[in-house]
């Protein structure tokens, strides 16, 4: 009885049929989520524990809403860029890739303005717990966006040297995965840190809980 046969045709196929590099990006993003998780948790724990200096009243919700919208739109542009390369439309790909990167740069610009404003109002990473956690978290997110911008421009310029083609649209797809992830992380940050802080969601939840407890008791 032969339990072991030889399969010459199985040289290059992957087990799942998915590309290794695409899986690598998914694994990396899972891991990266575990990087942002503790940073967000740390911020939430320390949200109101600062002993001095400005805390979340310093956040400018209207302006950050605009920058959040910009980043969301960049994800849309990323989708269109990927559609372009997959259909072999290089012009479409280049236009929307450049748009994605530019919108990312606008977002980073907003962040730089925000950090500068904070510094003017006396909030730096050394000021208090809020400054340490908020600026570290959003700073690391900004670093992620910056890496994404460099990556996108690399794809953009590489496309003129014939290195990005319809056949290897996977390269763009992987960059897109990364870009969307970074975008989603921002949505979480905006929701959990800006909005919770601004509207006192936590306090309202607690009030509601007390009210319910009152009804029960």
């Amino acid at each position: 009885m032969q339990y072991l046969a030889r399969s010459p045709e199985a040289e290059h196929a992957t087990t799942t049929g998915l590309n290794n590099r695409k899986l690598l990006m998914w694994a990396f993003l899972g891991s990266d989520a575990m990087f942002f998780g503790p940073l967000i948790a740390t911020h939430l724990i320390y949200r109101t524990e600062s002993l001095q200096g400005p805390i979340e009243e310093i956040l400018n919700i209207p302006v950050t809403t605009i920058s959040t919208f910009v980043l969301l739109m960049s994800s849309l542009a990323m989708v269109l860029a990927l559609a372009g390369i997959q259909q072999g439309k290089m012009g479409t790909f280049r236009f929307w890739t450049a748009m994605t990167a530019l919108l990312g740069m606008v977002f980073i610009g907003f962040q730089m303005v925000e950090f500068t404003e904070f510094a003017k109002h006396g909030l730096t990473p050394r000021t208090n717990l809020f400054g340490s956690t908020f600026l570290t978290l959003t700073g690391f997110h900004g670093a992620h966006v910056t890496v994404g911008i460099i990556w996108l421009w690399s794809l953009f310029f590489a496309s003129f040297r014939g290195k990005v083609k319809q056949e290897n649209s996977l390269d763009v797809e992987i960059a897109g995965l990364y870009w969307h992830f970074v975008d989603i992380v921002w949505i979480v940050i905006f929701g959990v840190i800006y909005l919770v802080g601004a509207f006192g969601v936590e306090d309202r939840v607690l009030e509601g809980a007390h009210a319910l407890a009152g009804l029960g008791g």
Binding site: S50, L51, R126, L129, G131, S132, T136
Partner: peptide
Amino acid sequence: GTNFYDITAGADPLL
């Protein structure tokens, strides 16, 4: 000079 584990800034060493 951040304050993540700095008790004098109100940090909790259990973090």
